[in-house]
Design a protein around this nucleic acid. Structure first.
Lengths: 302, 302
DNA sequence: TATAGCTCATGCCAAAATGGAATTAGCTGG
DNA sequence: CCAGCTAATTCCATTTTGGCATGAGCTATA
């Protein structure tokens, strides 16, 4: 068995946690798998898997080697596909990471559009608001909102989303309208949970800048839930235009203090720079950066 | 022969331009090489090399496959080395690209220092002022000065170099001293060739900003040559502090209008983001970013 | 606690592949 | 036009490969 083949089998063993399962899947006998792993270990001089007849546990070295192995296999598949002239067809798996709310509201449908355009592709959309996950987790592309960008990756700014103050018409007629920044202090201010707990918002107009201390007793770490709260007239609050822009347009929400600006939020496409980016990743990056610009409420950047 | 082995042989054939040379080098017979290539081509369904008995020419597909092949082989070597526990020793080749002048004056000795620290490493320092070359050429790390950064790579700002106006004492006593920005207009202004041909320089002091039109009949696209011109009293001019800072300190040059500032130049370390950066690249990046900060005339950033 | 059912390792053997020597065939430059 | 390269091909001994049968060990269940 080829080294490449052995590495493939090894990675399947790691993923399935079993020699025989990997053997069945790869349509070889179990002893063959056994010998493959043994030969890999012999070549490396390191034990990759601790196996105690009925349990397979990966060792530290094994885990590390598995990471690299997966990467090499991907590269190899790409190289072969390209040489065969199959890479023009955008095929293969594509892992995209994005914030939950942005994903639910926009990226989800964009991915579907992408797949309609490139049916041979395979997309795995991973929605999470965690900050640590970034590209190291194995994603090919990530959408990031705001300033805190992961280090050691390429970040391409593709748009800016203004932040707007909104409330529902019902809420306003019930609780009173908001004409000046200082009016905000006496309202119930809804916020996204988990970010700065600082109850201060900043507004600017021309050379004028004010900060207002706001108060509220509800926050939620889910954008769509926050959006729903605004619609339901629970309170007033700020949100990026991509989250509430359509509601303002349809009249379900009212934009407040529209002559004032709030700090806006940048939209970045983040990805690993590879010398030889697979075709599907290149295509997807340009597709997304093109289409995200068209999202309602975003201002085109560049 | 292994696929990995076949790929290695293929890459050697490409590099040496000959089946038999690659065979000799790899200590296998020429027919073996012949068969390896044939089998690769059969597997890929593509002709990689056009061979007419006494000449080997690489095809377009072959070239592309060679690129990927080299990359995969590197990854493979790294993976094996790491599994063997040899990657802690920072070994393997490291290609570093930098502007000519900066390289001659600083990076060269930094690389030597790096090698003293990690004798198993192998460094290839590529000095060029071309703008196109970037990382795609196969460099692992590049030093970039100024704002124009290549796209699709990680750029880490590690320092800022103030730009200073200088001239030699001899020049000044001969041609007259410079007390105000406007004095510059009547002097011979030396400049780096190839950049903006615009004969205007910008100076600022507190909230004050002035632009001065300067004149001169000599420019050179080599930093060290420019540096020498200043020392030789050929004229006055501006240069980043890393280029002339030591000369100002030693009194060979005089800094002019030191209460005015010029637009400074950022120093970036540029590299490809890889999910699994080889140890030597990681180590070198942190070594360089640490030591470049110490270069005379640079201001620490971050 | 005994046993059934799973796990992975090993020895053996037939079949397949590999790789080298010798040879053939084809350019190329003096 | 021939000497001296080049790569392709054929053939064969050798090695490698991978499956089968088997053995040994863990685990869960009755």
């Amino acid at each position: 068995m080829d080294i490449i083949e052995r590495m493939r089998v090894f990675s399947r063993v790691v993923e399935l946690g079993s020699f025989s399962a990997a053997a069945r899947e790869s349509r070889v006998s179990q002893p063959t798998v056994s010998k493959s792993i043994a030969s890999l270990e012999k070549q490396l001089g390191v034990r990759l898997l601790d196996r105690s007849t009925s349990r397979v546990v990966i060792t530290g070295e094994g885990k590390r080697f598995y990471e690299r192995t997966r990467y090499i296999l991907e590269e190899y598949v790409d190289a072969v596909a390209e040489a065969r002239g199959q890479s023009l067809r955008v095929s293969g798996k594509l892992r995209i990471s994005a914030p939950v709310g942005f994903g639910e509201l926009w990226l989800n449908r964009l991915c579907v559009d992408f797949l309609r355009l490139y049916p041979e592709a395979e997309v795995e959309l991973l929605l999470t608001d965690r900050y640590i996950d970034l590209i190291e987790e194995g994603a090919d592309i990530a959408v990031r909102l705001g300033d805190y960008l992961p280090p050691n990756v390429v970040a391409r700014k593709i748009a800016t989303s203004p932040r707007v103050l909104v409330a529902s018409p019902a809420y306003l007629s019930r609780e009173g309208s908001i004409e000046r920044p200082s009016d905000l202090t006496s309202h119930r201010y809804l916020r996204f949970a988990g970010l700065s707990a600082d109850p201060v918002i900043f507004l600017s107009r021309d050379a004028q800048a004010v900060s207002v201390v706001v108060a509220g007793n509800y926050s939620v770490n889910n954008s769509l839930a926050l959006r729903q709260c605004f619609v339901d007239g629970i309170g007033v609050g700020s949100a990026p235009a991509w989250l509430v822009g359509d509601l303002v347009d349809s009249g379900q929400l009212v934009q407040l203090l529209s002559d004032w600006d709030m700090p806006s939020q940048d939209v970045h496409l983040v990805y690993v720079s590879r010398r030889l980016q697979p075709e599907r990743v290149k295509t997807c990056i340009s597709f997304l950066s093109e289409h995200i610009k068209r999202i309602h409420g975003l201002q085109i950047s560049d």
